[in-house]
Structures are given as structure tokens and as C-alpha cells.
Amino acid sequence: MSLLQVREVTRSFGGLIAVDRVSFDVHDGQIKAIIGPNGAGKSTLFNLLTCFDRPDSGSVLFEGRELFGERPDRVVRMGVARSFQNTQLFEEMTAHENVILGTHARSGSSFTPAALRLPSARKRDDLASQEADRLLRLVGLESWRGSLAADMPHGLRRLLEIARALATSPRLVLLDEPAAGLNTQETTALGEVLYRIRDHGATLVIVEHDMGLVMEVSDEIVVLDRGCKIAEGPPRLIQKDPAVIRAYLGEEDADEL
């Protein structure tokens, strides 16, 4: 059974249909990429899948449960974590603390144990700290543990956001343009991190512009153009797909590839 079932999802802004009856499946253990020219509706679709935006119609089932209508933080606790195209880190906190906040998804922010300093609160804090350290190692940021997020270079901030997403113990991780603004070396490192995440049992959906990365890491690709799905399949087939080539090399978007 597929982990995520996207069915006939539609979202329009005024007269513009940003996402038009898009359907696809994400299977357990996959890395699935969503690509498309600028304005294809990738980011809109992404915000819909994580319930940061509401669709006009359609349905998204995660492990058989409807996601639409849920609050974003509930979706995270159900097991769907995300990153942002413009990183949304806690700038005045350390890298370690940023990741610890992700663990709040599972263990809560309850007042009573914290207010009374119950042993259970202390134990939970210790576990959260260890988990954050493990995830910083997973994305290769262990040496930045005590640095403020604001002081970290752009490429590493993206990795930090991924680590925070992983700290929510997700089954599905959605990454919004994780390679944007990264140099070649950083992109290669990111690819390795993505493999590592998948090997730890999470399924990945990435929205990405970097074709090199997409073609290398993804098992399957969904191609959007002007809100519609125009192709879906493994990278080798997508590269040869006439509709995809037309979308990318067509009149308006000739400079995309």
C-alpha cells in the first residue's frame, strides 16, 4: 500500500488554477521528486500536502488517514515533517536547541512536569538532547552544535532544518528545494544525507530545481506544468518524455534547463 495517496488535488487563487487535479502515490521507502518549470505549482502543492494551505478540493491520504482539514502541527505529529524553501530556523537558538524543538512534536510541551521539575521532565530532556546530537551527526553538523542558527552558513542551515524535521520522528519527510543556493560540493553532501535519511526508514518527497540531484537520488519523478501533472515515472523515462521536454524547452521556459 502506498504511504501517501494524493487524489485530484486542486487549488486556485482568484482566476489562476495553481494546482489542477493532481494525483499521485508515494510508496514506503521511496525518494520521490516533484519538478517543473517556475510557476508550475510545486510550492503550492507542497504547502497543501503539509496542510500549511487549504485546497479547493481533492484528498490526501497518509497511511489511509485524510490529512486535509488538519492543523499543520497535527500533521507533523501524525508523521509528516517538512522543511521550507526560505529556511524557518530559530535564529537566536543554537543548532542543538533547534533540533531539540523538533522532538517536542513527539514528547509535547506540557506545563505541569516542567513547572514542577518532575523526574519525567528531566528524563525527557536528556533523551531529547541525545536524539538531537544523533541527528546532528546524521546530517554532519556535530561540530556546529553550540553555534547560533543565525551564525551558520546558508548550506548548513538547510541541513539543520532537515535535522529538525527528522527530530519529529517522521515517516514521511517533505523537503522544499533543499539544494537551492548550495554549491556543487554541498549538493553532493546533501544527496548523501538524503540516502542516509531513507536508509533510516523515512520516505522522502523533494521539490527541487537541481536536475542533477533529482536525476541521481530520486526513484520516481512527478512533473508539473502550469498546475497539471504532465508526467510521472523513473528518471530515465522522464528525461526522454516528450511532454516534459516540451514543458522545459517550450517557448516561455527555454532558459530553464
Partner: peptide, 16 residues
Amino acid sequence: RALHGSELGTMASGIN
């Protein structure tokens, strides 16, 4: 404190 830093980031951390 997270809420002060980024509301979106706080939601993405699963915090109500």
C-alpha cells in the same frame, strides 16, 4: 522562544 523566532518553524516542529 521558538514562537518568537519563527511561527512557521514552530508549527513545523509539531508544536500546537
